[in-house]
Design a protein around this nucleic acid. Structure first.
Lengths: 197, 197
DNA sequence: CTTAAAGTAGACCAGTCAGTCTATTGCTTT
DNA sequence: AAAGCAATAGACTGACTGGTCTACTTTAAG
């Protein structure tokens, strides 16, 4: 398995289609068509559609984690600013996809975690990795005294990820980023507020 | 169209299967099998699968709205207590379905709002109706002085619905209601906190 | 130059999908 | 009793599903 170009093309097209239509609604033939790869190659690189789906998740998680690191662990920027930048990037992405795509991991979590334990485990791991990135950013904020320390950063990270995923879902059905803005506003006003001295 | 028993059976089975597997993964034949209704009857009551899906949404929204009213608009109970009862009911339901089902409207919103504008509109309306229920409950709380008035009840309602839906999604992939508890805790501690006098 | 493996290519398979069609049953109104 | 409609019943259709199979081409090693 040396030539990864074809494999990469398959994963790219797959990620795009699955983002738009979901896993079940995306047929293998459709993936093959959009990237001009014959079926023989598909089953040379992947043992099944599930195997392919897991590869799509893995690839997305890996590349997205780089984005996340550059946004949330940039020590040149104050931690709360980094968070705001992260939210802004999410809103921008929502605009770019015309409020249709949202978050691939969130979508698949909703669609597949009741259907397959393998998928659920994979998606859960991705969420946990993301939460860890938030935790570090929040620890920085607490260390600098930007936010109160009475709530554990782990709890805050879970709260933020959870709320943000929900806001993305709501933004999709509303076709507007308003819920994402509203979440951010209240979060910074009342949860990540400066501690009273 | 007098006999609604068969129609109801179809919708019931459909709601159950769609809750578990999603809309695209649920075939009409599977619905027919689980309730022992022949295909002829299905297409007698519904013009297409989409038509059927919309009927499932409508029925669910209607019956669930009754639950919502009894939980959130019961004037014998303090408004914040009503909210807590609502969250508790949600967690209980999550346990009952072994963390697999979650919220039918949330699931379909994720799966279909990028796929069909008809579905998106229908689901959006349901969300907006729910938000209104929260708004009234929060207005009560503000009127009683239980929570601060510096944030509009509409904004709070959006924040709560959004966060709760996200918590449900996260609970599904984690197979644990912990994210739902965490959301509730931080919400009451820092967002729906008693106003300082 | 030979040979084996990696990779490409697409015809083909059984099964399933949403949806159609015709036939029949049961009830209601005349 | 007759007519007409609501509803039941399920065989059937063409399109499409994930997956298999065989044949061919390219690459690399000995």
């Amino acid at each position: 398995m040396k030539n990864t170009a074809t494999r990469d093309k398959l994963i790219d097209s797959g990620a795009q289609l699955i983002s738009q239509q979901g896993y079940n609604a995306t047929g293998i033939n459709a993936v093959l068509k959009t990237c001009g790869v014959p079926k023989g190659s598909f089953y040379h690189y992947f043992s099944s559609k599930e195997d392919f789906g897991l590869a799509v998740i893995e690839r997305f998680a890996t590349t997205y984690d780089e984005t996340l690191v550059s946004l949330l662990e940039d020590s040149d920027t104050p931690p709360l600013e980094r968070l705001k930048r992260y939210f802004a990037a999410g809103r921008e992405h929502m605009h770019e996809c015309d409020h249709a795509t949202g978050c691939l991991i969130g979508n698949l979590g909703q669609e597949l975690s009741g259907q397959s334990d393998t998928f659920r485990d994979a998606l859960n791991l991705v969420f946990q990795r993301w939460e860890q990135r938030f935790v570090r950013c929040l620890q920085d904020a607490q260390a600098r005294g930007d936010i109160a320390t009475h709530t554990a950063p782990e709890a805050l990270a879970s709260f933020i990820l959870t709320g943000w995923e929900g806001a993305i879902l709501r933004a999709k059905t509303l076709k507007s980023v308003e819920p994402m803005e509203q979440f951010e506003t209240i979060l910074f006003q009342q949860v990540l507020a400066r501690p009273s001295p």
